[in-house]
Amino acid sequence: MRKWRNAVVTAAWVAVGTAAGALGAWQLASSDGAGGAAHSRPLDEAAVRAALTASTPTPTPPSASAPPSPSSTPPSVDRSTVRFTGGSATVECRADGTVRLVSWSPADGFHIDDDVERGPAAVARLEAEPGDDDDQPDLPYEIRCADGTPRAKVVPDTDDD
């Protein structure tokens, strides 16, 4: 009787585990990705641009009686991505020749130091640091815009540590 009881209990556990697994697989397969499903794919640069364009609100035109204020006119901006050994950054190259870091992301095995000089300025700066490899040097970068195109260049490390 005891062997039979153990077999029934084991079969019940297996059935419950199988049902739970099947339910989880069904839920993932039928998900539309709106809730951030585990199988959703990252967006490529073109898809990100399209999503940003679609989500950008249309500005309300100024009334005819009031002239637009100079501060309400945004400068001409060209946004693009620059890639470098320690990662990548989304950069705005502005009409006045200045650069502004919009966002940045480290490459695998690196992290970006908290000391980011994002601009707008003639030069933006950030430093990519290797994760656990003390033998690999830090990579300080200066990012400039030349003819509307961002360029990242490694510069000498000025840290005293």
Score class of each variant (00 low, 15 high):
Pro62Cys: 04
Thr98Gly: 05
Val102Thr: 06
Ala64Phe: 10
Ser71Arg: 13
Pro57Gln: 13
Ser105Arg: 04
Arg100Thr: 02
Asp113Cys: 01
Pro106Ala: 14
Thr56Trp: 03
Ser80Lys: 02
Ser105Gly: 04
Phe110Cys: 03
Thr90Ser: 04
Ser72Gly: 01
Thr98Phe: 01
Phe84Trp: 01
Val48Glu: 10
Gly97Pro: 12
Pro74Ala: 05
Val48Thr: 09
Ser105Met: 08
Cys93Glu: 05
Thr56Glu: 06
Arg100Glu: 04
Pro106Phe: 08
Thr53Trp: 05
Gly109Thr: 10
Ser71Phe: 15
Val91Pro: 06
Ala54Arg: 11
Asp78Lys: 08
Pro59Glu: 01
Val116Ala: 15
Ser103Leu: 14
Pro61Ala: 06
Glu117Pro: 09
Glu117Met: 12
Arg94Gln: 14
Ser69Val: 06
Pro57Glu: 12
Pro75Glu: 05
Pro62Arg: 11
Ser55Asp: 13
Arg100Ser: 03
Val91His: 00
Pro67Arg: 12
Asp114Arg: 15
Pro62Gln: 08
Trp104Ile: 07
Arg100Leu: 05
Ala89Asp: 03
Ala51Asn: 10
Asp114Met: 15
Pro61Gln: 08
Pro70Gln: 12
Ala50Tyr: 06
Val82Asn: 02
Thr98Gln: 05
Thr90Ala: 04
Ser65Phe: 07
Asp78Ser: 07
Ser88Val: 08
Arg49Val: 14
